[in-house]
Design a protein around this nucleic acid. Structure first.
Length: 319
DNA sequence: GAATCGTGGTA
DNA sequence: TTACCAAGATT
């Protein structure tokens, strides 16, 4: 029974209580956690927060919820509007999938975000984490929520390691399920508390153990803070197709009209496109000075992903 | 299971 | 300046 020893000798009620108290006094007042939150607002926040820091999500989330208060409001818009309103949050496929999720919610769920884990998981762009998070935080269900923060807290507090394994394992899910409070409302609070602890105190680099409400129970501290057993592999950026894709998307977001593909490979200064409103992103793309075949690859990738469409007048965001 | 997919802040 | 990192999902 591997994995069961981690939590077996723990006073779980004490941990639950300690983190609940800490959360009540310390948690950030995020709008998607406010009393007037809606399931749609929670879903939008969870998708935006995938690999994106809270501070950058906040203003975009506000704009989205004012413009599209419910899934049906977004569903009646072209997908390109979602991509444009996504702004610079990154990973624009998330915007495309969130729009597709809104359509699915309108068509298959009467315009109401479903509360069941399985139904949520079936929505585009919603994986195991997001489905559990929405079910827990928006609907008060008892679900085992495991994100990067919770994985790191569990690794230190319960398993005594500096970092979780590179990929989510079945053992981690079992452990998380073991320590989840039985009581439904306590389970929701626990999920939010552990996540918040990971975000504010038990951070990836230089954790603030002096502020930790459960430091006396921490297996990693007890073990003398052993270093990570592996070095995380960094995400390359400069010179990659991703960088070119990002630069192309910036041009399309700024363009009011379709952009002729050949403009992407030419110097904007020679074209006089400042007036068209796409001069700056076009210049940024040109500054990359990427090979023609790389640009071709990036454009083909965006077309294949549905992030761009080719029309007689040129390339534009999807309709 | 590994690779891919944006962006900007921070150490 | 470079490299890590942030409420992952999909293929």
């Amino acid at each position: 029974m591997p994995g069961s020893a981690d939590a077996a000798d723990r006073d779980l009620p004490a941990l639950h209580s300690a983190l609940a108290g800490w959360f009540a006094s310390t948690a950030r007042p995020l709008p998607w956690r406010a009393a007037d939150r809606t399931p749609w607002g929670v879903l939008v926040s969870e998708v935006m927060l995938q690999q994106t820091p809270v501070v950058r999500v906040l203003p975009v989330w506000q704009e989205w919820l004012e413009r599209w208060p419910g899934p049906s409001d977004l569903a009646r818009e072209p997908a390109g509007e979602a991509v444009r309103a996504w702004g610079r949050l990154g990973y624009p496929r998330r915007a495309l999938r969130l729009h597709a999720a809104a359509v699915a919610i309108r068509d298959n769920h009467g315009g109401q975000v479903p509360g069941d884990y399985a139904a949520l998981l079936a929505l585009p762009g919603v994986g195991s984490y997001t489905a559990a998070a929405v079910a827990s935080f928006a609907f008060g269900r008892r679900e085992t929520v495991v994100d990067t923060n919770i994985r790191r807290v569990h690794a230190r507090l319960l398993s005594g390691t500096a970092l979780p394994s590179p990929a989510l394992t079945a053992a981690e899910m079992r452990l998380a399920a073991q320590v989840l409070p039985d009581d439904v409302s306590s389970s929701v609070r626990w999920n939010a508390s552990v996540m918040e602890l990971g975000a504010l105190v038990c951070t990836a680099r230089s954790p603030k153990c002096g502020q930790c409400p459960v430091r006396d129970s921490c297996a990693w501290l007890a073990a003398g803070e052993p270093p990570p057993t592996y070095t995380p592999k960094g995400q390359s950026w400069h010179g990659t197709d991703r960088q070119v894709r990002g630069a192309v998307m910036a041009v399309l977001r700024a363009a009011d009209e379709p952009v002729e593909p050949e403009l992407f490979g030419r110097a904007p200064a020679d074209l006089g496109f400042e007036a068209a409103g796409i001069g700056i992103p076009l210049a940024a793309l040109h500054r990359l000075n990427c090979a023609p075949e790389q640009l071709e690859r990036a454009l083909a990738g965006l077309l294949g992903d549905g992030l761009a469409e080719l029309h007689p007048g040129g390339l534009r965001l999807p309709s």
